[in-house]
Structures are given as C-alpha cells and as structure tokens.
C-alpha cells in the first residue's frame, strides 16, 4: 500500500525533498534560504508563463523525460525487477538527450553529450549495485530485498560508498554537475525549455531524487530504521559535498568512475562471490 502511495505522490514528495534541500544548502552557506514550499511556487509560476517551444519533438522529449522517470520509479517501487527499473531510468535520460540534441543551441548539444558521459559513468555502477544486492539477497525483486533479515550494508560497504559517490553524478551536484553546469553552459540539456515545458524537466528532477534515495534505502534490508538513517546521511553528505567542492572536467568524472568507483564495487562483488 505504502509503495502505491509513494509512487502516486512522488512529484509532491520529491518537491518537498527539493525544498528541504534548498533550505539545507542555504543554511550551509549561512543564508536563510527560501521557504519550504518554494519548489511548488516555482511550479505554479511556470504554469503561468506563455508556452514557447522550439519544435514539437523537443517539447515531447521533455515530457517523455518526466513520464519515463515516473515510470522507472513506479517499476522500482511497485515490486518489480530492480534491473528493469535501472533500464527504464536509462530511457528517461535518453529522452532528455534526444530532446537536447535536436535543437541548434550549442549549449544544449554540449549538455546532451555531457549527459551521455554521465550515463557512461553511473549506469555500470547501478548495474553492479543491483548485482551485488542480488548476491546478498538472492533475488532481483525489491520485496525480497526489503524482507531480507540481515544488513546488506555490512556485506556491501564498498558498493555503498561507490554508490554514495555516484549520487552527485545522477542528481547533477558538484563536483559532478557537468551536464548542468549552471555557470558554464547554463543548464545544459534544459536550456531551451521554457514555461510549462521546463516544468516537466523541473519535476522530473524531483522524481529522480526519490528514485535515487530508494536505492539508498535498500541497503538497510528489512531494518527500515537503518534505511532511513542511511537516506538522511546520504542526503546531508551529498549537500555538504555539493557546497564544498568545485566542478570537475568530464574526463575527471569518467576516470574517477571507471578507475576508482567501478573497481571498488567490483572488488566487493568478487570478494562476496568468493566467500559464498
């Protein structure tokens, strides 16, 4: 029941998460920050703008991103294969990339290419993480993971650390906010969207928060308190990292992901497989 509610209300809950994040970020910078409902005010304001679009495919792909993102979350939460949820997330990101590379704005195309670099960096890790969970739990089903008696985090510490460091890549946070790069390419893939169409991207991002933090929650197994604790710790860590670091080059990101994170996660998986 709770997963159905969470799926249906995902944009609203994600909006609250984003609101909390903006406040936390502001407090970390010694500012007061916007009110908690600020993302929803932005949402309503964007509804009221004149709709402008470049061409219909571009706008459609923006809306596709939102729908596919929501669908990936639904697949994840409504008790299906974790691997399939990962692949539906790929479809969401691909919609974004296709939309962004279909316009002539150089920033948009550059953002799309960098978004692909993001995907190259984090998707293998997602798959590795799901495989690692499979080795521990013995099933790809989210219900079995959530019913697992032991502590997955204790058997997969390196995978967890690797995933923690990939979250900035997925949520576009410093030091890996390369595709979005607000000071440099001004939002990357989202630059050409405006008004109601930008809204789809803005809300899709909120859903992505829920999607990512659900994976963090899975590391608690059937101990939900541990899952919640991990989610809160991950949230604070991501924001701290976001505030404390500057943006890296995309080469540095890919190198870091393939040279450090993936070997680390793979080592954990190999040790686990040998042990059993």
């Amino acid at each position: 029941m709770i997963n159905v509610i969470l799926t249906l209300l995902a944009p609203i809950i994600g909006g609250f998460v984003y609101g909390i994040e903006r406040i936390v970020k502001a407090r970390m910078q010694k500012r007061v920050g916007p009110p908690l409902l600020q993302p929803f005010y932005d949402f309503f304001k964007l509804m009221d703008k004149r709709p402008l679009m470049i061409h219909s495919l571009h706008a459609l792909m923006g809306i596709m991103y939102f729908i596919a993102e929501w669908f990936a979350l639904a697949v994840l939460l409504l008790g299906n294969d974790l691997l399939i949820a990962v692949f539906f997330h790929v479809i969401a990101v691909l919609a974004l990339v296709i939309g962004a590379s279909s316009v002539r704005s150089p920033y948009s195309v550059l953002g799309a290419l960098r978004e692909l670099m993001h995907m190259i960096s984090y998707e293998p890790l997602m798959v590795l993480m799901v495989v690692a969970l499979f080795l521990v739990v013995g099933s790809f089903d989210i219900r079995d993971v959530l019913a697992y008696e032991g502590y997955p985090i204790l058997r997969l510490p390196l995978v967890f650390i690797a995933f923690l460091l990939t979250i900035p890549m997925m949520l576009q946070k410093s030091p890996f906010d390369i595709a979005e790069a607000h000071q440099e390419i001004i939002g990357g893939p989202e630059i050409e969207y405006s008004g109601p169409f930008y809204e789809a991207l803005y809300t899709g991002k909120w859903i992505e928060y829920i999607y990512v933090f659900t994976f963090v929650f899975l590391f608690g197994g059937s101990h939900y308190w541990l899952g919640v604790l991990l989610v809160i710790l991950a949230f604070l860590f991501i924001n701290l990292l976001d505030n404390a670091s500057a943006r890296l080059d995309f080469r540095a990101m890919v190198k870091f992901a393939w040279g450090f994170l993936i070997p680390m996660a793979a080592l954990n998986v190999i040790l686990l497989a040998l042990w059993q």
Partner: peptide
C-alpha cells in the same frame, strides 16, 4: 545573492537563461 541580503529568501534566483527568467 550573498548571505547578508540573501534574496533567495524571496524565491529569487539568478537563472542566467532568458527562456526561464521573468
């Protein structure tokens, strides 16, 4: 934009993108 005046309190953001700015 800095901590002393912090206009993000009023929801203002510096977007740098004409398509999304008001």
């Amino acid at each position: 934009l800095a901590p002393r005046y912090d206009i993000e309190r009023f929801g203002m953001l510096n977007r740098g993108n004409p398509k999304q700015a008001d």
